[in-house]
C-alpha cells in the first residue's frame, strides 16, 4: 500500500487531532463541564424543572411532525430527481438547497411576514381565530423550512449512483410501481435514509434562530429546548443552561452513535452479501 512517509503522517495526524480537539472536543467538554459544575444532584434538579420538561415535550412534538413530513418530501423529491431526466433538474436541485442559504432569523421573519397580524394572511387568520405565529404551528413551520433539504440531499446522490437497472428489471418481471419501490428501492436506500433522518432530527431539535423569531417565548408553552437554554443563560443560571444544553448535546451524541451503528451494520451486511 502506498502511503506517506512517517513524519508526514505524524504531522497530518497532529493537525487533524488538533483541529478536531479545538473545534469539537473543547465545546463539548465545556457543555458537560458546565452542566456538572454544581454536582450531579443539581444537574438532575435542573433537568426535572417543570419548564424544562415542557420545553423538552414541545421539542419532541415539533420533531414528531417535522421529521415525517420532510422525510416524505425527501424521498419523493429524490425519486423524481434521481430516477428521471427532465429539463430544469439542476435548477430544482439548487432550489431545494435554498433554505441552507437563508439566514435563520430571516427564515423566521418570512413566516411572520406571511402569517403575522400585519402580514398577508394575518387579518384573515385573526378573524377566524387561528394562531400560527407565536404558537406551535409557527414553530413547526419554521423548523420544516430550516430542515427542508436534509433528506433529499442525502438521497439524491445515493439513488443516482445506484441507477435504475434494478427497478426496471423488477418492472419487467411484472412487479407493480409501489411494490417495486418498497421491495427494490427502499432496501437499497434504507441506510442513507436513516442517516438523513438522523441529521434532520438533530437539526430540527436544535434550531434556535428561526424558532426564536416565531415562538413568542411564552414560558411553559412555546419555549423549545434551545430557547429555554437561552432563557436560563440570561437568568444567571449558567449551570441550568448548560444542564439543559447537555440534554441536546447528549441527544446529538446519541444520534451520532446510532449513525455509527447503522454504518457498521451496513458494512456487516455488505460483507455477508459478498460472502454469499
Amino acid at each position: 500500500m502506498i502511503t506517506e512517509s512517517a513524519p508526514v503522517r505524524r504531522i497530518l495526524m497532529t493537525l487533524a487531532f488538533g483541529f478536531v480537539g479545538l473545534f469539537l472536543i473543547v465545546p463539548l467538554v465545556t457543555v458537560f463541564g458546565g452542566a456538572l459544575q454544581g454536582g450531579f444532584p443539581l444537574f438532575i434538579k435542573n433537568i426535572r424543572d417543570p419548564y424544562t420538561r415542557a420545553a423538552i415535550l414541545l421539542t419532541l412534538q415539533t420533531a414528531a411532525v417535522v421529521v415525517p413530513l420532510n422525510l416524505l418530501f425527501g424521498v419523493t423529491a429524490a425519486w423524481a430527481i434521481a430516477k428521471f431526466d427532465f429539463f430544469g433538474k439542476r435548477t430544482l436541485m439548487t432550489l431545494i438547497d435554498l433554505p441552507f442559504t437563508v439566514s435563520p432569523i430571516v427564515s423566521g421573519l418570512i413566516f411572520v411576514l406571511l402569517f403575522g397580524a400585519q402580514g398577508i394572511f394575518g387579518p384573515w387568520l385573526m378573524r377566524h381565530d387561528i394562531k400560527i405565529i407565536f404558537a406551535v404551528p409557527g414553530i413547526i413551520l419554521a423548523t420544516i423550512f430550516i430542515t427542508f433539504p436534509y433528506v433529499a440531499r442525502e438521497l439524491i446522490p445515493l439513488m443516482q449512483a445506484q441507477g435504475n437497472d434494478q427497478e426496471e428489471a423488477a418492472l419487467t418481471l411484472g412487479s407493480g410501481g409501489w411494490r417495486t419501490f418498497f421491495l427494490v428501492t427502499l432496501p437499497n436506500i434504507r441506510w442513507g435514509l436513516v442517516y438523513g433522518v438522523i441529521l434532520l432530527n438533530a437539526r430540527a431539535m436544535g434550531e434556535f434562530g428561526a424558532v426564536s423569531v416565531v415562538s413568542g417565548h411564552i414560558r411553559g408553552l412555546t419555549n423549545t429546548i434551545p430557547l429555554h437554554v437561552e432563557i436560563l443563560y440570561n437568568e444567571y443560571n449558567l449551570v441550568g443552561a448548560f444542564s439543559v444544553a447537555s440534554i441536546l448535546a447528549f441527544l446529538a451524541i446519541a444520534t451520532l452513535v446510532t449513525k455509527m451503528l447503522i454504518k457498521w451494520k451496513t458494512r456487516q451486511e455488505m460483507i455477508l452479501e459478498e460472502a454469499s
Partner: peptide
C-alpha cells in the same frame, strides 16, 4: 478513529446558541 468520525457531525446537532455560549466560554 470511530469516535472522531462520530464527532464530526456534532456542529449539525448542537444548537447554535449552545455552541456560541460554549465557544465564548472556552
Amino acid at each position: 478513529k470511530k469516535i472522531i468520525d462520530m464527532l464530526i457531525d456534532l456542529p449539525f446537532a448542537l444548537p447554535t446558541a449552545v455552541a456560541g455560549i460554549a465557544l465564548t466560554t472556552a
